[in-house]
């Protein structure tokens, strides 16, 4: 048996991954994943906001009246987003300008609101923290993988401009795989994001199916015979 923590971790990273299974937060996911650095930047911002908001919502869950819970959640989330926005302005200004509107828009990211309402408002602080942290790690992983796919296909290089996030030491992280690469604009443009996400979801489903096939099939149990009359539905 898995412990509760393990279940929470597995849920966030795989079984209930916000990007691949719940399909939440698609707007920023599709819009900013045209390079690894953009994806990582937004992923980290979301990580801080989601973890922080889950923690805070859980902390105040007993004081929050049921009827006005959503406005309260929004205010908590907005506070964290504002903090992150100011921090990014201070320390990674260029990345902040590149991500532009998508930083303030983290407030409206359905993953954060969803976790606050569905999980953090009903669970203890520790569980909420773990849930928030691993949900956002799962979200960030998808962002970064999609960003890497699109950057690689679109420009033939990886990790461009990583110094925007990590400072001077990252300037030579840029890997060019093909020198004479004709830029595949489709991958960088929004349709490429849809196609890339579709392929990632297909890959996840394929892996799930393979795992399921490998497990022994449980013996079919006899269906219980129902007694008494049963109405048969005849209309469409």
């Amino acid at each position: 048996m898995q412990s509760e923590t393990q279940t929470l971790i597995k849920n966030g990273l795989w079984t209930n991954n916000p990007a691949l299974v719940q399909l939440l937060g698609l707007c920023p996911l599709l819009a900013v994943t045209n390079s690894v650095v953009n994806a990582l930047g937004l992923g980290l911002a979301t990580l801080v906001v989601l973890t922080g908001s889950n923690l805070t919502v859980s902390l105040f869950r007993k004081l929050t009246p049921e009827t006005v819970r959503l406005p309260i959640f929004v205010m908590i989330i907005a506070a964290f987003v504002t903090a992150i926005e100011l921090l990014m302005q201070a320390f990674t200004y260029e990345l902040y300008t590149i991500l532009g509107i998508f930083i303030p828009l983290i407030v409206t990211n359905c993953v954060i609101m969803g976790r606050a309402d569905a999980f953090a408002s009903r669970n203890a602080i520790k569980e909420s923290f773990i849930d928030g942290f691993f949900m956002s790690i799962g979200f960030m992983l998808v962002l970064v993988i999609l960003g890497a796919m699109r950057e690689l296909l679109g420009t033939g290089a990886l990790f461009a401009n990583m110094d925007l996030l990590f400072g001077e030491m990252a300037t030579n992280w840029h890997i060019t795989l093909a020198d004479d690469y004709p830029n595949f604009l489709f991958a960088i443009l929004p349709p490429g994001a849809f196609l890339g996400l579709g392929l990632l979801i297909a890959l996840k489903n394929l892996i799930d199916q393979r795992i399921k096939e490998r497990q022994p099939i449980p013996e079919p149990t006899e269906a219980p015979v129902s007694t008494g009359s049963k109405r048969v539905r005849v209309t469409g």
Binding site: P182, N183, F184, L185, F186, A187, L189, P191
Partner: peptide
């Protein structure tokens, strides 16, 4: 359409 959007020069 995909080729035209991606590789306008060629």
């Amino acid at each position: 359409a995909l080729l035209l959007v991606s590789f306008p020069v060629q």
